[in-house]
Simulated assay, not measured.
Amino acid sequence: MTSRVTLISPAMNAALRQALFDDGTTSLDEGGAATARAAAGSLPAPTRVLTSPSTRCRETATALGFEGVPVADLGGLDAGRWQGLTLDEVAATEPEAVGSWLSDPSSAPHGGDSVQSVCERVGRWLDTAQGADGRTLAVVEPDVVRAAVVHALGLSAAVFWRLDVAPLTATELSGRAGRWNLRLGSALTAGQP
């Protein structure tokens, strides 16, 4: 049996534009919502639809025409006390902490999740998804897409920040017998099957 998991990154919102450590409550902006609505119908019919618990992921799923089930294990990286601040603001006041966080996957100077812990959490979820019949579509935070790719390819968590995930793109994983294959970052566009 081959399992198929398509990870969709959320459409654009103010938090993504500002590199803000979002607390998960920021909605899509009108341009992001319109782009997602225009891409509705561009994905194959899934067996199940899941989302990160964040507002932007749930709203992206809805705009794409799906009713997704929020899954805690697909939540984005918890930035702890940095939530509500931009990366520039944190870098100006805590440059060493930001440097450590970006270079050491086990570092969590903000008191939230480390990159390593997110990769492990998402990896455990992906391992269980490999046994699911049919096609799973998951609208998830960009860091969840990164963590899934790290796990699927058996990469070191040190490459996490080197994986760019553009808004409203599909990363497809297909797996069987403990092995995943990867198709990266297809843009969702109107009329694309």
Rank of each mutant, 00 (worst) to 15 (best):
T2K: 12
S3N: 08
R4W: 04
L7S: 10
L7I: 08
L7P: 02
I8L: 14
P10K: 04
N13S: 10
L16M: 15
Q18C: 09
Q18D: 14
L20M: 13
L20D: 00
D22C: 15
G24E: 06
G24F: 11
S27E: 10
S27N: 00
L28G: 03
D29Y: 10
A33E: 14
A34D: 07
R37I: 08
R37L: 04
A38K: 04
G41R: 14
S42H: 03
L43T: 10
L43Q: 11
P44L: 12
P46T: 06
V49I: 12
V49N: 05
S52R: 03
S54L: 11
C57A: 15
R58T: 15
A61S: 14
A63N: 10
L64I: 09
G65K: 09
G65Y: 10
G65M: 10
E67Y: 00
V71H: 11
A72I: 03
D73V: 07
L74G: 03
G75T: 08
G75S: 15
G75C: 13
L77R: 13
L77H: 12
W82N: 08
W82C: 10
L85P: 00
L85H: 15
T86I: 09
L87N: 01
D88W: 02
V90I: 15
A91P: 08
A92P: 03
E96L: 13
V98T: 05
W101I: 01
S103N: 13
D104P: 04
P109C: 04
P109M: 04
G111N: 08
G112S: 08
G112F: 10
G112W: 10
S114E: 02
V115L: 14
V115G: 06
Q116V: 00
S117R: 14
V118C: 08
G123C: 12
R124I: 00
A129T: 05
Q130V: 00
A132I: 09
A132P: 00
T136F: 07
A138I: 09
A138Q: 05
V140K: 04
V140E: 05
E141M: 06
P142Q: 08
R146N: 09
A147N: 07
A147M: 13
A148M: 07
A148D: 04
A148N: 11
V149C: 11
H151N: 08
A152G: 09
A152T: 07
L153T: 08
L153Y: 00
G154H: 01
L155F: 15
L155R: 13
A158D: 14
V159F: 12
V159L: 12
F160P: 02
W161K: 09
R162Y: 02
D164S: 12
P167Q: 02
T169F: 07
A170E: 12
A170S: 09
T171C: 06
E172F: 04
R176C: 01
A177R: 13
W180D: 00
N181M: 04
L182F: 14
L182Q: 05
R183H: 12
L184K: 02
L184I: 04
A187I: 02
L188N: 03
L188P: 05
T189Y: 10
G191P: 00
P193T: 07
